[in-house]
């Protein structure tokens, strides 16, 4: 464990708790893409299948359990409890356009052709594009609530910090996982224009609005 990965994990935890808190407090999931949340749920479930079989540490097990629980709770709030506030007209990104190619790629490019490894690879690839419906929804509505932009900033920062963690681990532990690194770079690149808008607008107290 290194500081970059720890701060990354905490940023990730902050992001998902922030979103859950926003929906619960405002009793509304306006501006939130349910499709992205479904895909994140899929990411955690397919990645943490070894939750009960492969004990790494208390921290690892706890965080995995929290991520799965919070993802399920968020999906429940969006599609059940506060369904009336779900903006399905703007959450129109076709998930199958992401899940099918990612599923195919996971079969073709992986470290080991076993069920667990292919599911892990699928999870890594899916996570890199899971935010697209959310970014697409913001581009359609032209704006995002400030709390939602903080959520996105924390979520984007987590994988950016993981890239630093991988550089650190390569030099100090000789560890690297090309699949995770490439997918992590793609994932972080997708946030770049959002990061720019966040730093230039939200940091200056303005609302995040995309140039119409």
């Amino acid at each position: 464990m290194n500081i970059f990965r720890l701060v990354g994990d905490l940023s990730h935890l902050l992001a998902i708790l922030l979103l859950l808190w926003k929906i619960w407090k405002t009793r509304s999931c306006a501006g939130v893409s349910g499709k992205s949340q479904i895909m994140f749920g899929l990411v955690y479930i397919t990645r943490y299948l070894d939750l009960f079989t492969n004990f790494i540490s208390i921290y690892n097990t706890t965080m995995k359990a929290i991520f799965i629980a919070v993802a399920i709770a968020t999906i429940y709030l969006i599609y059940f409890k506060f369904k009336a506030t779900y903006d399905s007209n703007h959450d129109t990104f076709r998930m199958e356009f992401l899940i099918v190619p990612v599923g195919g790629l996971a079969f073709l490019v992986n470290h080991d052709f076993t069920a667990l490894e292919i599911l892990w690879t699928f999870s890594i690839y899916l996570e890199s594009v899971a935010i697209l419906p959310q970014l697409f929804m913001i581009s359609k509505t032209g704006e995002a609530e400030t709390i939602t932009s903080h959520y996105l900033f924390a979520l984007g920062s987590y994988r950016a910090l993981y890239i630093v963690n991988w550089v650190y681990r390569y030099y100090f532990e000789g560890f690297f996982d090309l699949i995770a690194i490439v997918a992590g770079c793609v994932q972080t690149i997708l946030y770049c224009d959002f990061f720019y808008l966040y730093v230039t607008k939200v940091m200056h107290g303005k609302k995040l609005s995309l140039p119409a």
Binding site: D9, D50, I56, M63, H111, W120, Y162, N165, A180
Partner: peptide
């Protein structure tokens, strides 16, 4: 070559 270490990352 990739060193397949324990999947210890989240």
């Amino acid at each position: 070559s990739k060193i397949q270490m324990e999947k210890d990352e989240l």
